[in-house]
Amino acid sequence: MASRKTSYPNRDGGDKYSVLLPTYNERENLPLIVWLLVKYFGESGYNYEIIVIDDGSPDGTLEVAEQLQKIYGEDKILLRPRAKKLGLGTAYIHGMKHATGNFIIIMDADLSHHPKFIPEFIEKQKEGDYDLVSGTRYRGNGGVYGWDLRRKLIRFHFLFFPLSPSLINSRGANFLTQVLLRPGASDLTGSFRLYKKKVLESLVERCVSKGYVFQMEMIVRARQLNYTVGEVPISFVDRVYGESKLGGNEIVSFVKGLLTLFATT
């Protein structure tokens, strides 16, 4: 490993990237996502750390994380577990407190966000000194895998019959939000993003919503505060292992969140 490292570019810009990985029952996915992160950060030569925030997963995710820490080192893998499931929004806040990088990357640990895009995020950020860079499924080469036409159609119906579950990632829901809020970013509910740490801190302070709507609120507030947003097309591959944690009341919270943002931003 050490001999291979020398052939990689060594970038000493003083920038450090902290990747926040919130996990809940991701025993199978966590080693794979970590392996991919190490691979792509290694190849691109950026300085990084991975912060795993596990919420007491009953499947033993934390135990796997500890093994990974032994393999890759305590400077690369940081464990910041919490005793019980306290939700995604607070997991980011908790992880951020322990981050030592000046940039923070937020992504899902379920392999739907591929680490190969991170070097692109970083280049994009440098290109325009953006305050945040957001992955988008709705532009350029972006897209999804694992949604069949039926699923897409159900999602599409939402505009008129708001009945389907997991509509948040949908075209319909995204369109509605675009119309109502005009946020200046094409993928509002995606959660694969790179932030300047200071920017994330100031955004988090202002964001009130929980869970899913949190992502949306972050980007809407970013626009409100005149932060600059860069976008990178990403492919989104639906999770292979494990279960989705989002249930039926997703719709209710989405609509509530949307209306709240509508009235307050």
């Binding site: 794979l32 991919l36 392999l111 591929h114 499924r137 709705y138 080469n141 972006g142 897209g143 999804v144 895998y145 694992g146 949604w147 897409k152 159609l153 999602r155 599409f156 505009l159 075209r171 319909g172 369109f175 492919s235 989104f236 591959v237 292979v240």
Partner: peptide
Amino acid sequence: VGYRVATFNDCEEAAIELQEQ
């Protein structure tokens, strides 16, 4: 919405690449 659903990119290669990795 209809147009966007119809033209939504299916990232098959991405899924295959991921499986191999």
